[in-house]
Computed example of a mutant assay.
Amino acid sequence: MGVSTHVLRAWESRYNLLDPVRSPGGYRLYGTDDERRVREVLALREQGVSAMEAARQVLAAERAGAAAAMGALADGDLPADVGQSARDTMRADPPVLVAQLLDAVTALDEDRAHAVLDTAFLDRSVESAIVDVLVPFFVRVGEMWELGRIGIAQEHFASSLVRRRLGALSLTWGIGTGPVAVLACPPGEFHDIILLGFGVLLGRAGWRIRYLGPDTPVASLASAADLTRPDAVVLASRRPSGFRAHAPALRRLAQAHPLWLAGRGTTPRVLEEIGAMHLGPDLVADVALLTAAARDRRRAREESHEAAHEESGASADSEPRS
């Protein structure tokens, strides 16, 4: 396969990619599954994927396939005339993925939940996985909790599971020269997963993210905004009271920085009291809206600076010379 023993051992120890057995003499013996994984990693490496990411993708696809097979056995085998492409489409269909994820979370089955997430992120774009799978999933989790169909344990399990997955996608938030966004939830608001997902989408659109997270004091948010001079401050809450309880401070913040409110707590009355702008439930459209607004603000600043420079030059030319 053209891979040295040293590399094979590194992939085994670092990524758990291989599972060899020992011969009576103590030598490693690799099986057909090991060979297949190595070949798949090498194929991804040729496409420019790092060894770590390639190993993750290979193992994720394997887990997803195992989970799908278990689901088929539990529900009865699919008809023989259903082709492989149709099976793959069914596995990657967002409503199916949401249902599978809910089942896994209800059972507190971490391996199965990760397998479903692997399928979502491997078979779909990151944007689609977040917008079409994770957002509807958390809406359903909230509904099921309110109806008493799941408990606090399942809700916390779901949040922890997805937070870790989204956290891995946030590692490049501080890189680049794009616009800056400060993201937070007001005091008393602890549900920030959708805001975190929005941060991932912004980051993939070139934004640099300063994520303050849940239960952020408004004074701390204002200090962060003054320090970073962001192109957008996004504050999310599920309840209007999360905003209205801090209306005077948020009004001052909106006068100093471009403040956008998001979540179910964003009512017309709240927007009027605070003087902020509104982000709706369509996360992809919101990314485009913030990006356009940041571009317009920067263009306006540049034009203002140019006008001031021209005025200064004109004033200098009009001064009498001695």
Rank of each mutant, 00 (worst) to 15 (best):
G178C: 09
G203K: 11
P94M: 08
D109H: 03
S322Q: 09
L42I: 00
L102T: 06
D33H: 01
P258A: 05
S13M: 11
V58I: 06
E143W: 05
V3W: 00
S159K: 03
G275V: 09
A314D: 05
A67N: 02
Y30C: 00
M1K: 00
S160N: 11
P179Y: 05
Y15P: 03
D296M: 03
Q100F: 00
I175C: 13
V180Q: 08
F190K: 12
P136Y: 04
L97A: 09
R163P: 05
G263E: 09
D75Q: 02
I193A: 10
A129N: 01
P186M: 14
T267F: 07
V3C: 01
S159W: 00
A54M: 05
E146Q: 11
I193H: 11
G313A: 07
R56W: 06
L212E: 15
L29H: 02
A292L: 11
E127M: 14
P217D: 14
R210L: 14
A158T: 06
L169K: 10
Q255K: 03
M52K: 06
A224V: 08
Q154L: 06
A115F: 01
L171H: 11
I194S: 15
D109Y: 03
E306G: 06
D81W: 01
R56S: 13
P79F: 02
R298A: 13
R14T: 10
A293F: 02
L108A: 09
A285F: 06
A256C: 07
G25P: 00
A300E: 12
A43R: 07
D215A: 15
I130Q: 09
G313H: 12
L108E: 05
S220E: 15
A129W: 04
L122I: 07
N16M: 08
R301Y: 03
S220W: 14
A316P: 01
V162A: 09
R63H: 05
R39M: 00
V96W: 01
D88H: 07
V21L: 07
L259V: 09
